[in-house]
Design a protein around this nucleic acid. Structure first.
Lengths: 122, 122
DNA sequence: GTCTTGGTTCGACGTTTGTCGATGCAGCAA
DNA sequence: TTGCTGCATCGACAAACGTCGAACCAAGAC
């Protein structure tokens, strides 16, 4: 466990919340670095299963849900876990263990930043 | 069919009608079909090069730009064309040839629908 | 201790994606 | 006609991705 995997470059730290990245896309073009960071978030929502998982959590009570509540999306349980990890790594979700169960919760400010980015009204 | 303004008529141009899909993600979970259609749009923005191209067009005069104006994003010309096609297929852009040049333009209502989807305020 | 349940990580495999050079096509100008 | 320029498409290839079963870990219950 001492060596880092090359395929797991720390693009976004899990606990690094609140990344109000950029102004609306109409204001100015994104730099390469901004685009690199922002694309991770959009890519996280760019899969049907992840989008369903995210909507299940977002529409759940308090914007959070136990994994056991959202595991019925048509893929195996390890796959669900894999997708939740991707959403978490992108900063869109946070997770917390409470007793036996793990709860995932939306990161409101990150999602709000994405929404604001797409607000093209001048 | 050629002279119709996009903003005045229902959006029906692309093969996939990526029209205003769904209520905010807090309201209810997405169905599998909704997720499938919506994920295409997010996936389109889930690449750094495409995100830069999109921001270049969105921030350009009138929300449209000639390909020749936005080709300097660090990849080859065929790759730029490939990415623009993906954005267009996802419904986020429309294209129009004027004389020698091809102009790409943002599809405001589709982008607005994505933004609204991520508006998690209850 | 052992057993059971909820979730994550591992290893592998087939598919998709991003990228390029080469080629093709449309429009303009000699 | 010929030539040139702006973009799109083709063909190929490596890298990334989504998926699964197996194995593993964490927390209770017995």
């Amino acid at each position: 466990m001492s060596n880092l995997s090359v395929s797991e470059l720390p693009v976004l730290q899990p606990e690094q919340t609140a990344v109000p990245c950029c102004p609306p896309l109409t204001e100015r073009p994104l730099s390469a670095e901004e685009a690199e960071r922002t694309a991770v978030m959009f890519k996280a929502l760019g899969d049907p299963v992840r989008l369903r998982l995210f909507s299940l959590i977002a529409s759940h009570e308090g914007g959070e849900a136990c994994v056991c509540d959202i595991s019925d999306v048509g893929v195996s349980q390890p796959t669900v876990s894999h997708h939740l990890k991707k959403l978490k790594d992108a900063g869109l979700l946070t997770s917390e263990r409470r007793a036996t169960w793990v709860y995932y919760k939306v990161a409101p400010d990150v999602v709000a930043a994405m929404s604001a980015l797409l607000d093209l009204r001048r």
